[in-house]
Amino acid sequence: MVGIKGNRRVVYTKKAIKDSILTLLEEKEIHQITVTDICKRADVNRGTFYAHYKDPHDLLQTMEDELFHKIVKYIDETPVNEYSDSLLLNVLELISENRALCKILFCRQRDNKLLDKLIVIASKADLEQISEEFSKSYSHYYMRYIVCGCIAIVQTWLENDLPESPSEIVKIINSVSTINYNDLTQAEITLK
């Protein structure tokens, strides 16, 4: 039935439109892409595009929001003591499954607010329990440091076309984070 959420034709059309913009973003910046470009590549008419999205920016924003909603859902579903393993693995598997979009978001889009969004997402996590021994006065530095470090590792992973598995990247991130957490904790003690 037309118009019902989950209709196979609608799902297929949205997927074709999303695939189209991802392909175009490999060649151009978002501000250079037109609705006509997307429609030609997706083999849909403009009316179909406008039934779902306002413009290419809205389409990309929708795709980014869907990805981040999944990450927030993982945070909500994962116990705090499993963040560094289960949560990180789920997020990296999600990135792997959405490789083309994540390459665009993490590596190619200069004007997006990815870091800010990830910091907001990280702040939804119960960081007080993660770093109980780290004082509140320094925890925001630690969080920003870890998020930026994780982004750099994920960017490198994506730029190299994901040669390691998500579980190998979890090990890399956790080993780097542990080393740096210990260094930061020692630095905090020294500053006091």
Rank of each mutant, 00 (worst) to 15 (best):
K136H: 06
L162F: 07
D76C: 01
I30V: 15
L67K: 01
K124D: 00
E133K: 15
E64L: 03
Y50F: 15
P163M: 04
I95G: 00
C107Q: 11
V154R: 03
L22D: 01
I169P: 04
H31P: 02
L105P: 02
V10M: 14
T185I: 10
H140M: 13
K73L: 09
L184Q: 09
E132Y: 12
K28V: 02
T23M: 09
L22Y: 03
T62A: 15
Q61Y: 15
S96M: 06
N81C: 05
F49V: 11
V2H: 13
E188I: 10
F68K: 05
V91P: 00
K14M: 09
P166N: 04
D85K: 03
G47F: 08
K136W: 03
N182T: 10
I17G: 03
I38M: 03
T190E: 08
D76V: 02
S165D: 05
L118C: 11
K103P: 01
V80S: 00
A187D: 11
R108P: 01
I21D: 06
I153K: 13
A42R: 15
D85P: 00
C102T: 02
T23Q: 12
T156C: 12
T13M: 09
E93M: 08
L24N: 04
L87D: 02
D116E: 12
T78F: 03
D19M: 07
S96V: 05
L22T: 01
K5G: 11
V120T: 06
V10E: 12
L127S: 07
T62S: 15
K136F: 03
I153C: 13
L88A: 03
Y12Q: 14
R9T: 14
L114H: 09
Y142M: 06
V154Q: 02
Y141A: 05
L25W: 09
L118E: 10
P56K: 02
E168G: 05
T178A: 14
T190F: 13
L162H: 07
L162K: 06
W157A: 03
D76Q: 07
I38G: 01
K40V: 10
K54E: 11
K54M: 07
D161W: 07
P163N: 02
N180V: 08
A187M: 14
